[in-house]
């Protein structure tokens, strides 16, 4: 007997979207052959922003875990890289080992932090970040706020290094987005969305809320840790104050709010917008920050679903669908 229904998970728009994404990725892949050094560095920054936005979105947009302390993982990612590289590991390996260590730290922290609610969690993360910052300052290698450098990077010629970092950043971004997308499309993804929409109801249909949130929390720490480590690779210097600055989380919040919280495409769009704004207005100093803050406030008040949320609602387009569409094939309804 044939089933009276079929489940569709891809749409024509999404097939087009995937093709478009593949083309963009291919273009980025050959960019080092064409672009000048400065442009490559900027694009590396864009990849890192996308990683940050996607991870904060995973945490807040899906897990309902609004953290203002994610700079902790950014700083730790950079710090652990410095530490491991100091033992003699290649910096290109060290960044991945560092990200895994940061994820392990997050896994441990999750047994305390995930039991905090709403504002307690948000502020708790910030406190934890400030505390971690102080601990890192105690490490003799870091020399307090004076900081240190990723000296082992000097082993590579500047041009090769730039291209290598660019490609590693691009690969890392694609890997993270891939992991997140696969997670959202999986069985766990349905649970994640259920938690986003209604935690109590999710519990009552059998979703283990803490376990599901833990996956997001650890993934976000891994991704943001990796982003911090990559940032260190491009900047070379490590001053704790810069990396453990709440400004990083402020950027993440901005990108996600403007792009569309709880939307996979939204975070990416937000990061691209942030990148463009920064490129054009970043030099205007304080007014740039005021502008960013103002835009975030306006979006959260008047366009709570962000730009991508509005696009989705208006045109019904989903480029990267994670849902399940029921199509009736039989004649019964």
């Amino acid at each position: 007997m044939t089933k009276p229904y079929a489940i569709e998970r891809w749409t024509p728009a999404s097939r087009l979207g995937l093709t478009g994404i593949a083309i963009v990725v291919a273009l980025f892949g050959v960019a080092p052959l064409v672009l000048k050094a400065g442009s490559l560095d900027r694009l590396t920054a864009l990849f890192i922003y996308i990683m940050l936005a996607a991870m904060w979105n995973a945490l807040a947009g899906y897990g309902g875990l609004v953290s203002i302390g994610q700079q902790m993982f950014f700083g730790l990612g950079a710090y652990v890289t410095i530490r491991i590289a100091d033992f003699g590991l290649s910096p290109f390996l060290a960044i991945f080992v560092a990200a895994i260590i940061v994820a392990a730290i997050a896994w441990l922290l999750s047994f305390i932090m995930l039991y905090l609610k709403g504002g307690e969690f948000a502020i708790g993360m910030w406190v934890l970040s400030a505390f971690t910052h102080l601990l890192v300052n105690l490490d003799g290698l870091v020399q307090g706020e004076t900081g240190t450098s990723l000296i082992s990077m000097n082993a590579y010629a500047a041009d090769n290094r730039r291209i290598a970092i660019y490609l590693v950043a691009m690969g890392s971004m694609l890997m993270l987005l891939g992991i997140l997308y696969a997670l959202l499309r999986s069985k766990t993804g349905a649970a994640i969305q259920a938690i986003r929409d209604n935690e109590v109801a999710a519990t009552s249909v059998g979703v283990d809320v803490i376990k599901t949130k833990r996956k997001l929390f650890v993934l976000a720490a891994f991704g943001i840790g990796l982003a911090g480590a990559l940032w260190l690779c491009t900047a070379l210097t490590f001053q704790p104050k810069t990396y453990f600055s709440v400004q990083w989380t402020a950027y993440m919040i901005f990108m996600v709010l403007v792009g569309g919280i709880g939307k996979f495409e939204g975070a990416i769009l937000g990061a691209v917008l942030f990148f463009i704004i920064e490129t054009w207005f970043g030099a205007t100093g304080v007014w740039y920050l005021i502008g960013l803050g103002l835009a975030a406030v306006i979006f959260s008040l008047y366009f709570p679903k962000g730009i991508w949320g509005a696009v989705e609602q208006r045109f019904g387009i989903t480029l990267l669908p994670i849902g399940y569409k029921l199509r009736i094939t039989g004649d019964e309804t």
């Binding site: 259920a194 209604n198 109801a201 399940y324």
Partner: peptide, 9 residues
Amino acid sequence: RPFLGMTVF
């Protein structure tokens, strides 16, 4: 308490 952002299915 429906999951508002998800479809009925």
